[in-house]
């Protein structure tokens, strides 16, 4: 284990509810620690005893294969005891409340809760009512901080200095939990942030956050250093604000042909799961500019770092 892991530094934040309000130093420390864990993941053993005796509960009130596996993997690589709890958000509407459910689980002596929930701010409720450390694995279209951190890690690995670099988020900004967290994180690193997509998928007044807005993908491709392609939720949109996937693909789908106009070293990210042939074409998804599988590995490494660093607060989160 390297020095970062030996002399454990502390994060200023006690929980990870969102990137908003976090400081640059915390993100730096998380990224640095993530790289150390990534090295460990590259070794044959892949496992450390850092969270031995720590119990982590993954509470997923919405479907998520990817994030859940990534967290579970990170927890197990750290030797934590892992409990999974899955239910639909709608069950909370009818049956036991979130607070009761969480308090019941906490009564069984747990230390950390990772939660995915459909309602923005649900994690704050949890934090106010539990003693455990809370990690947000996505709250509605609000924040998904661990995704932003793994995205940031994947970008910074290739482009260490983000100052003045333009990062464009493409697609469904309004329903995305990835977008806000990414915007906050990228701004902390001095990047110019741009959003691009059909006007109906760009939320109101987003430019007041200091974000550039364009509806023109060609323009965005030409002026970007990094593009993060968000997933179009196939079941959600067709209707008053979204004519068809066909039109979406034609105007906002990333193809190699369109990418020909990009800077040579443009990076392409996608948080997954991908809809190939909708927001991203095969030849881009498997092409030279993408770092999509790096993101997956970085996801495990950075979640290990987050769990590890936050575990320092166990027993004294409040």
């Amino acid at each position: 284990m390297d020095d970062t892991l030996k002399g454990k530094k502390l994060l200023k934040t006690k929980h990870l509810l969102g990137i908003k309000g976090m400081c640059r130093e915390d993100l730096d420390l998380i990224l640095q620690t993530s790289e150390s864990f990534k090295q460990i993941l590259e070794t044959p053993n892949k496992k450390v005893a850092a969270l031995k005796g720590v119990t982590v509960v993954n509470m997923f009130f919405e479907n998520s294969t990817r994030t859940k596996i990534s967290f579970e993997m990170a927890e197990k690589r750290l030797s934590a005891d892992v409990v999974n709890f899955a239910a639909s958000s709608s069950s909370l509407k009818k049956g036991e409340t979130l607070i009761d459910t969480a308090k019941n689980i906490e009564a069984m002596k747990i230390d950390m809760v990772v939660m995915r929930h459909s309602t923005p701010g649900a994690h704050k409720m949890l934090m106010d009512n539990l003693d455990s450390i809370i990690i947000n694995a996505g709250d509605g279209a609000h924040e998904h901080p661990t995704q932003a951190i793994l995205d940031l890690m994947s970008i910074v690995e290739k482009k260490p200095n983000l100052k003045g670099k333009r990062v464009t988020l493409v697609g469904d900004i309004v329903h995305s939990r990835v977008a806000m967290s990414n915007i906050h994180a990228l701004k902390l690193y001095g990047a110019k942030v741009q959003v691009c997509g059909p006007s109906t998928l760009i939320p109101k007044d987003i430019e007041k956050m200091g974000v550039e807005v364009t509806y023109d993908l060609d323009e965005a491709i030409r002026n970007s250093d990094v593009m993060n392609i968000l997933r179009i939720q196939l079941e959600r949109h067709v209707g008053a604000s979204f004519p068809s996937l066909r039109e979406y693909h034609n105007y906002w789908g990333i193809t190699n042909e369109k990418l020909a106009r990009a800077k040579n070293d443009i990076l392409i990210l996608h948080p997954g799961p991908m809809n190939r042939g909708v927001e991203i074409d095969d030849d881009v998804a498997d092409g030279d500019h993408q770092v999509i599988l790096d993101q997956v590995l970085n996801g495990v490494a950075s979640r290990m770092a987050i769990l590890y660093l936050l575990s320092a607060n166990i027993g004294g989160a409040k």
Binding site: K20, P120, A141, H142, M180, P203, D205, I206, K208, M209
Partner: peptide
Amino acid sequence: NESLSSTELGM
């Protein structure tokens, strides 16, 4: 309300 706040809160 639909506003900068709803945008930031994802509500």
